[in-house]
Design a protein around this nucleic acid. Structure first.
Length: 816
RNA sequence: GCCGGGGUGGCGGAACUGGUAGACGCGCCGGAUUCAAAAUCCGGUUUCUUCGGAAGUGGGGGUUCGAUUCCCCCCCUCGGCACCA
């Protein structure tokens, strides 16, 4: 009787072997083809969850697969260690964020090791360590000198009770999560990075990134939102300054019946000084949070300012309104309204009794009623004086030319993308390396004073940053003039750390530069895996930072991630696992019960990687059962002693069939893992092959040789997913060298050859017969055989055959 | 509201380039083994059916000899929307 499968023994022994032989530690070997395989690094929450297990297993499978393909694989791991949860833990439990974070990292590292991931732990990166963040401080000061960063006012969520800035996540139904106070919008000065300087490059390069999913590229394109339009100015009655607006539809200019400005616009403030209703309206506009989804879905409100703008073409007066949906931070803070041809303007005009004027007619000449329904399509101009009869392009150019000639406007390319606000009014983050001096203004911290170290021994109270109360941190001499000055107490958005860590893994210990030569060897990342929720922000910021580093001479690489795989969430009972819903499953317990391989296998088998994965306890049982079957299939085989060399010419029909299945499966799994990243079907194919091996039941020398070849192939091909059991079974099969150093099996084309192929016959699209035909049969012969079939004849039933379509190797379609 | 996904048996999913819908697994049913149970093994399993077949991939329409796959409209659901990471 063979030894039963004991996951714990098998797994700890494999992990011990990998650790002792240090087989996942890699150097920069110019003679080898490198493969950099990376997962989005985790926030160290302290507890491994199923989402982690899923993404890290996916990436580990890809890394191990490429290693078996002979590549020199780097798979590092690190910690996105700054962020709000550490501050929250500090407030709730009085533990300093640093202490909490470091202890979480210790816990999680141990949990990851138990899952058997092939990481090079010598390259671990922890973003809250000064050795790490000093380099982003350094890069920020370079960007400062180049004018790539600047300071301006921008809106935050203000909690008037806790006297603190809230993250969007901390605003629940417009109220502060702790105080329950109504959140207000407040403007404060913040630092911005000029990502818009790179907008065109970030957009254009998307067309040359075949390794990224189309959906992600589309989302980024739409986010950047390049548009071509015209910026033009309207005079305002009684004002010196004209009102500038941007429009992508200058062809509708004659349809402007009103204009609207943001609540923060100077013209609104001016009107508010004399009009208490407007003042009240502006106050009301502040009582909302700063999220786009809130602004887009809230009731569109407005109020006339009692001021008129002068239409630049007709000279007519159009009323000026203040409206809650116009944002000061977008464009010029003012819009021209064309209710006939813009959905939002139409609805607003309907609600406030403003006139709606049709200036575009459908190209096909059909009649429309602009008071019943807005007309959004491009068409032919009407009611537009000299411009009547022009199409969109003609009108765009004529009107743009008119404004450019008169100097009252110009063609302009606009982006929806806004500059990246990196200031956070929080403690647990990278200090922004700026010193404010009364004489010299904002001065970057000089290189020899970097890093600006975040003090770790603090008490966090939840009402503003504790740094403000630490004179030893705040007080610093001005680097320029030496006068007493004050440090910036805001910290960076944590997206800053995650925008360059992937490059730092190449040289985590470099203390002379942000990146060194080793980064030339390893970057760009060949395969990046992470959650779809990062499709825009993290990935766009990283693409931006990579270019900033490139333009700083640190690298030649422009695109950080050659291939991208975005994985779906892990759900239970149809919704995201979360503590509040009480539907979490603890990976630790499962590993204890079934072992890491079972958990890994279920994760790979239960769903394709991009889709959400529905958790199932029964499914885990099934995976465990399969591994037990796999184990006994191999041990039962080896118990019967050694096998003889296989002479493929002497195989009988069933032996030949198993051998064909083996090589078909090698081809399928290679394609499933290597090209399609379709791990669930790769597992299914392994299961099918194992079922076929078990069915063979042929203890002859040749039978056992064929089974042996199949078993070895399955052991190697399943090893990326379930590396521990495969490590043990490889030894069981009598090999002296470790599985981790083997090569991926090769398809023997001659084993795939077939004499007969099954084809189906359809009559009027319905399946009526199956034929077994010779592979080299002519279409005519196949057609004749199909028509001769008894059941086919029954359905043709004397009717005239109108058409016969033969798809070689697949089907015959007969139309009567 | 805007942008991007997803919707197929009782369940997770497969069908890759328009060509056999339901691979593989779970669950369930039947059988073997067992004093019995667990475990294991074998077989069956979309629905309806007059047993000839018919219907069927969120709903409605279209293109095609043929549509889960392509096009149009709609519904539901998930992710993102710039301070969660």
């Amino acid at each position: 009787m063979s030894i039963p499968y004991n996951p714990e023994t098998v797994e700890l022994s494999a992990q011990k072997y990998w650790e002792e032989s240090r087989c996942f530690e890699v150097d920069e070997d110019p003679d080898k083809e490198k493969y950099y395989c990376l997962t989005m690094f985790p926030y160290p929450s302290g507890k491994l969850h199923m989402g982690h297990v899923r993404v890290f297993t996916l990436n580990d499978v890809i890394a191990r697969y490429h290693r078996l393909q002979g590549k020199h694989v780097l798979q590092p791991m690190g910690w996105d260690a700054f962020g709000m949860p550490a501050e929250n833990a500090a407030i709730e439990r009085g533990i300093p964020p640093a202490k909490w974070t470091y202890s979480n990292i210790e816990d999680m590292r141990g949990q990851f090791k138990r899952l058997g991931y092939a990481y090079d732990w010598t390259r671990e990166v922890t973003t809250c360590r000064p050795e790490y963040y000093r380099w982003e401080q350094w890069l920020f000061t370079r960007m400062f000198k180049k004018g790539l960063v600047y300071r301006k006012n921008s809106i935050v969520n203000w909690d008037p009770v806790d006297q603190t800035v809230l993250a969007n996540e901390q605003v629940i139904d417009g109220r502060g999560w702790r105080s329950n106070a109504l959140v207000e919008r407040r403007e404060i000065p913040q630092w911005f990075m000029k990502i818009t300087d790179y907008a065109d490059e970030l957009l254009d390069e998307l067309d040359r990134m075949p390794g990224w999913p189309d959906s992600v590229k589309t989302m980024q394109r739409n986010w950047i939102g390049r548009s071509e339009g015209v910026e033009l100015s309207f005079d305002v009655a009684g004002e010196d300054e004209p009102l500038t607006v941007y429009t992508t539809r200058p062809d509708t200019l004659m349809g402007v019946t009103y204009m609207a400005v943001a609540a923060e616009h100077p013209l609104a403030s001016k009107s508010a000084a004399t009009n208490p209703d407007v003042a009240a309206f502006i106050e009301d506009c502040k009582k909302t949070d700063a999220q786009e989804a809130t602004l887009e879905t809230m009731e569109k409100k407005g109020m006339p300012l009692g001021i008129s703008a002068i239409h630049p073409l007709t000279g007519e007066e159009v009323p000026l309104w203040v409206a809650n949906f116009v944002l000061m931070s977008y464009g010029t803070g003012a819009v021209m309204a064309v209710p006939g041809h813009d959905a939002r303007d139409w609805e607003f005009a309907k609600n406030h009794g403003l006139p709606i004027k049709q200036v575009i007619a459908p190209v096909d000449g059909s009649d429309i009623d602009i008071n019943q329904e807005v007309f959004l399509e491009r068409g032919v101009l009407i009611n537009s004086g000299d411009y009547d009869g022009l199409d969109f392009d003609g009108a765009f150019n004529a009107i743009a030319d008119h404004f450019e000639k008169s100097g009252r406007g110009s063609r302009k390319v606009n982006y929806r993308l806004r500059d990246w606000g990196v200031s956070r009014q929080r403690y647990w983050g990278t200090p922004i390396p700026i010193i404010y001096c009364d004489d010299c203004d904002a001065v970057p911290v000089p290189d020899d004073q970097l890093p600006v170290v975040l003090p770790e021994d603090v008490v966090v109270k939840g009402t503003g940053s504790p740094l403000k109360d630490m004179p030893e941190f705040v007080n610093a001499p001005c680097p320029n003039c030496g006068k007493d000055a004050r440090r910036e107490t805001d910290t960076f958005d944590t997206f800053v750390e995650s925008s360059w860590y992937f490059a730092r893994y190449a040289c985590p210990d470099s203390d002379a530069a942000m990146l060194d030569d080793r980064a030339h060897y390893w970057t760009p990342v060949d395969q990046y895996t992470g959650g779809i929720e990062h499709a825009i922000l993290h990935l766009l910021y990283s693409r931006f930072f990579q270019r900033v580093m490139r333009d700083e001479g640190l690298t030649d690489v422009s695109e950080p991630f050659t291939n991208l795989l975005t994985q779906g969430m892990v759900l239970k009972d149809g919704s995201k696992m979360s503590k509040s819903k009480g539907n979490t499953v603890d990976p630790q317990e499962l590993i204890k019960k079934f072992g890491a391989d079972t958990v890994r296998l279920f994760m790979m088998f239960a769903a394709p990687p991009e889709q959400s994965l529905e958790w199932s306890d029964d499914g885990v049982q099934g995976s465990f059962r399969f591994l037990k079957r796999f184990w006994s299939a191999v041990t039962d085989h080896t118990e019967k002693g050694p096998v003889v060399e296989m002479d493929t010419n002497k195989l009988n029909q069933t032996q030949k069939e198993l051998r064909r299945k083996t090589h078909q499966t090698i081809a399928k799994i290679s394609d499933d893992i290597g090209r399609r990243h379709s791990f669930n079907t790769a597992v299914a194919a392994s299961m099918e092959l194992l079922n076929a091996i078990n069915k063979l039941g042929d203890d002859s020398d040749l039978g056992r040789a064929v089974a042996r070849e199949s078993l070895e192939a399955v052991v190697v091909m399943l090893s990326p997913m379930v590396p521990h059991i495969c490590h043990a079974l490889w030894q069981e099969l009598g090999h002296a060298s470790a599985l981790i150093d083997q090569s991926w099996p090769v398809v023997d084309e001659s084993a795939l050859e077939l004499d007969l192929v099954e084809m189906v016959v359809q009559v009027n699209g319905k399946l009526r017969a199956r034929l077994s035909v010779a592979v080299d049969a002519s279409n005519e012969a196949i057609e004749a055989e199909a028509l001769a079939d008894e059941n086919v004849q029954r359905f043709i039933d004397g009717k005239a055959v109108r058409k016969v379509i033969v798809v070689p190797g697949r089907l015959v379609s007969i139309v009567v």
